[in-house]
Design a protein around this nucleic acid. Structure first.
Ligand SMILES: [Mn+2]
Ligand SMILES: [Mn+2]
Ligand SMILES: [Mn+2]
Ligand SMILES: [Mn+2]
Lengths: 234, 234
DNA sequence: ACGACGGTTTAGACTAGTCTAAAACAATAA
DNA sequence: TTATTGTTTTAGACTAGTCTAAACCGTCGT
């Protein structure tokens, strides 16, 4: 059996690896988990012995298939919980993350099944992040791009919003920007500030830290209007 | 902050104390938590330093008011979770205990509030055990008596059933014996076997281990038919 | 009153996870 | 090529929680 500490390591290694690819550095993991590099080095050794990561000294780690499966399981728990809290217990999307983080290591497979069933097997969580399937098959690669990389005139659909900053999420919910929202970029200031028009015609200026946290896809895809966003908001 | 290990100690000390009164012996706690007496001695020392129990050497411990409050909080979490799992996620009363045990230390106060609200602030869990109120006021003393102490002819209402034995609970659910069920004792065998008639006229013979686990109250109370049992079963 | 017995505590060891401080290393700049 | 810099690893220490083995204590029967 794996401890919840080990599960947390595997989860963040997965997330970093999905973003920047392997190898995942000691310091990146230390940063994400708020632990010292020495501590992380020690735990990476343990994970290697358990066959959950491969390691190249002074380079970093990469998840093995078994390590990835564990990470996907934790991620499935986390995102199912977020979806359940938002849908069934009236949490806002800014509140679900911390609660899910605390519970993700402690629910049974039975609980996972029942929650998934109660929600009708949702594909994404309230922030638009994909929920791994019950068989823990690898997720599709992320095709979205940060809003901050777009230019004036681009029309895009919000796909995912980073769930790490509570205030940011509250602000965006107020601004009417959630997964599924269509945006048009109307201005890009040189010092890093993006102004967008939402579907309702309202304009919002977003600092680039926020624009970085919003991931979007082109609006004129062969796929019609977004149907993955329905589970994300009560 | 208290660890979940400490919370578990306080919970079982509370439960033993409620059953047999103080002092609670080292061995009783060790038995309940499946740890060695030496381990328990060590932790009781820690709990004493934290002001959660008082201790008399070679006698045992007793909860302080603060220790009792912590125990009530954990018990509230546990029993609210059991009620929620049974009511909202279709768990049977034999399945809820283990899941609640795993989650009880990890839910936030916010989660507790929302779950209680979703259930309409239930007074008892699926096994008939009282749920401490949000203000963690001490519970009323248990007025019920084990079914095994009753004689032929007694008519009683099932009030609480020990939630520790899964199979027992499944058996009793099949037999139609849950909190709120009215029973008449029709036979008491000398070797420890009680036969009861349920409301529907069916007769059930119960080994005394089972009859010990069923706690009842007289049927002809000034309080009318039981209204606390409604939350206990879907 | 005394010894035997069962329960309790002490002593000492071990694991998991963490830290700080120091040494080792890789990459880069001079 | 070599020195500087920043990252990584090693070394050693510490805490929480647990165990086994041994010593200790209180009680009960003789
Ligand atoms: Mn976590
Ligand atoms: Mn999320
Ligand atoms: Mn517990
Ligand atoms: Mn219960």
């Amino acid at each position: 059996m794996l401890s919840d500490v080990m599960e947390d390591y595997l989860k963040v290694i997965y997330e970093i690896q999905a973003r920047s690819g392997p190898p995942v550095s000691t310091s990146a993991v230390a940063e994400a988990l708020d632990k010292t590099p020495a501590t992380v080095t020690s735990m990476l050794g343990t994970l290697e012995e358990r066959g959950l990561v491969t390691r190249e000294k002074y380079k970093g780690v990469e998840l093995t298939p078994e390590g990835e499966t564990v990470a996907l399981e934790v991620l499935r728990h986390h995102r199912l919980l977020e979806a359940y809290l938002a849908e069934q217990l009236d949490y806002s999307w800014s509140e679900v993350h911390d609660e899910a983080d605390a519970l993700e290591h402690h629910i049974s497979e039975e609980f996972e099944r029942r929650v998934a069933a109660a929600l009708g097997d949702p594909a994404v969580d309230p922030h638009g992040d994909p929920i791994p399937s019950a068989d823990l098959a690898p997720l599709d690669e992320d095709e979205t791009t940060p809003l901050s990389t777009h230019d004036v005139g681009d029309r895009v659909v919000v796909s995912r919003v980073s769930d790490r900053d509570r205030e940011e999420l509250e602000y965006l919910a107020d601004a009417g920007i959630t997964p599924g929202t269509t945006l048009e970029v109307v201005d890009v200031a040189p010092f890093g500030m993006v102004t967008v028009r939402t579907g309702e015609g309202a304009e919002q200026s977003l600092p680039d830290t926020v624009a970085d946290a919003i991931r979007v896809r082109p609006v004129d895809e062969r796929t019609g209007p977004d149907d993955r966003a329905e589970v994300t908001d009560a």
